[in-house]
Amino acid sequence: MSRTRGHAAETAACAFLQAQGCTVIGRNWHCRYGEIDIIAEHGGTLLFVEVKFRQKPSFGGAACSITPAKLAKLLTAAELYLQQHSRPDAPCRVDAVLIEGGNAPVWIQNITG
């Protein structure tokens, strides 16, 4: 059940990002460090997007589920993606799309600060 919800949330996040002018390059890119939910491009910047869905905003909601450990894995996976795709100097950032219940997605840009 949660896998189906997760896939639906990622599909909604892709549609949302495209409506904001992003071009989705890939989804669910896997490597030994983990998975990048969405890889997109926006205004010449490569985006590595973490999608988080929570049915209810309990326990801090979707944003609180991006832990420092998860962020570290995401950064390492993004670095590997850049190396493997011959884009080591590409402008890039790590973003998140948060979806809580039936609310509209929220796009948080540059979650690494």
Rank of each mutant, 00 (worst) to 15 (best):
T4I: 10
G44T: 06
E79I: 01
I36S: 01
C64T: 14
Q20E: 15
F59Y: 07
P68A: 13
E50N: 15
D95L: 09
S58D: 15
C14A: 14
A78T: 00
A13W: 01
E10R: 02
C64M: 11
I66A: 00
I99N: 03
E10P: 01
K52R: 13
C92M: 06
Y33C: 13
R27I: 12
E50V: 12
Q84L: 04
A12G: 06
E50A: 12
T4D: 07
G102W: 12
Y33A: 13
H85I: 01
A78F: 03
G26Y: 02
A19C: 01
R32L: 06
S86Q: 14
R93N: 04
L80D: 04
A63E: 05
W29V: 13
A69M: 09
V94H: 12
T11N: 05
T45W: 04
Y81K: 02
A12Q: 13
Q18I: 12
E35G: 00
A77W: 04
I111D: 02
Q55D: 15
L74W: 06
D95Y: 06
R27C: 12
S58N: 15
Q18D: 13
C31L: 06
Q109T: 12
A40L: 08
D95M: 07
I39D: 01
G21E: 11
Q84H: 07
I66L: 08
L82Y: 00
C92E: 10
A104M: 08
Q84Y: 02
V51C: 08
R3D: 14
S58T: 15
Y33T: 08
A62M: 05
E100T: 15
A62Y: 00
Q55L: 15
L82M: 07
G101K: 15
K73F: 01
Q20C: 13
N110Y: 07
C64D: 13
E79C: 08
F59R: 14
S86E: 13
S65Y: 06
F59I: 07
P88H: 06
K70C: 04
L74S: 11
A77N: 05
K70S: 11
P91E: 02
A77R: 11
A62V: 07
G6N: 00
S65N: 09
G113V: 07
E35I: 10
G26T: 02
C22P: 03
I36K: 01
P57E: 06
L74T: 15
L47I: 08
N110A: 14
I111K: 04
W29R: 13
G34T: 04
